[in-house]
Design a protein around this nucleic acid. Sequence first.
DNA 1: GTAGCTGCAAAATTTTTGCAGGCGA
DNA 2: TCGCCTGCAAAAATTTTGCAGCTAC
Lengths: 155, 155
Amino acid sequence: MAQHHPDYATLMRARGFRMTPQRQLILEALGAGGDHLTLEEIYARVQHIAPTLNLATVYRTLDFLCDQRLVATADVGGQKTYELVGEEPHHHLVCRSCGEMRQIDHAALHALCATLDREQNFTMDMEHLVIFGRCSSCRGTAESVASASDTHVLH
Amino acid sequence: MAQHHPDYATLMRARGFRMTPQRQLILEALGAGGDHLTLEEIYARVQHIAPTLNLATVYRTLDFLCDQRLVATADVGGQKTYELVGEEPHHHLVCRSCGEMRQIDHAALHALCATLDREQNFTMDMEHLVIFGRCSSCRGTAESVASASDTHVLH
DNA sequence: GTAGCTGCAAAATTTTTGCAGGCGA
DNA sequence: TCGCCTGCAAAAATTTTGCAGCTAC
């Protein structure tokens, strides 16, 4: 799998682009923040270090990094989020009652992947899947929904 | 499973709300349009019949119908979409190269569901799952991405 | 008749764009 | 030095809100 901190500067220069402090900061924020940071969270983090860094720059930089396939987006709970590409394939179970988010690994979906391949002739993306549902502690409670989104995201 | 056209008017009156022509139209658009209509698509459809129907009303009505659990939302390809609740549980495979969307039924995910339940003590929502990947005809082509969104949605 | 609902318009919010100057290579 | 990038501010796009009048019941 990809290493944790590729040499982004070299990579970008090789592609004819520049490594600027702003891009560096945003990449670091994404690396340090774990996955699933929203644009606002990213903005808050980099702003903390570089208060003059403009919101428009965050929009443009994230667009740029997505184009370059260094960053990927996913929708989690209706929120568009960003994360570095190249992390271990992993997936999440998100409880729609309490919002708890648990990681599961690739293996759990292996059977599904094989089935789709065999029966549907379809190769599913395995980079990152988010499955909504209810965790054991929330199961059985009469409590209703609306705390977590209805949206279930697979990335 | 739920019938295709429940008596929404009676249901809403029973809950102390009104059935207005606007709500009727939006429900019909959702019923006729299949699943995964965006707000704009819904607006366009109802506008075609009732040109004075306001965009703000569409926003408010969809909110209202979601609150009432008559309509559910999902994010497909980064777009928030709406559909009637109470249809057959079904899922989609979406090719990120050509955009083809294929339905698969509940059974295909049954094994995954059981595994998560057993090993993770987690009950996944089964209402509606969208899995991105590549279909057989696009597999093997060198063609790159970006035609379909990176976002994979499970609802 | 009454209260919920809608249309309209304005406001608030979110995202994009133009342009001059700055800075990485 | 060259031209890619950024900050700033304005524009554009999207979503929400206030309010008066209408209408479902």
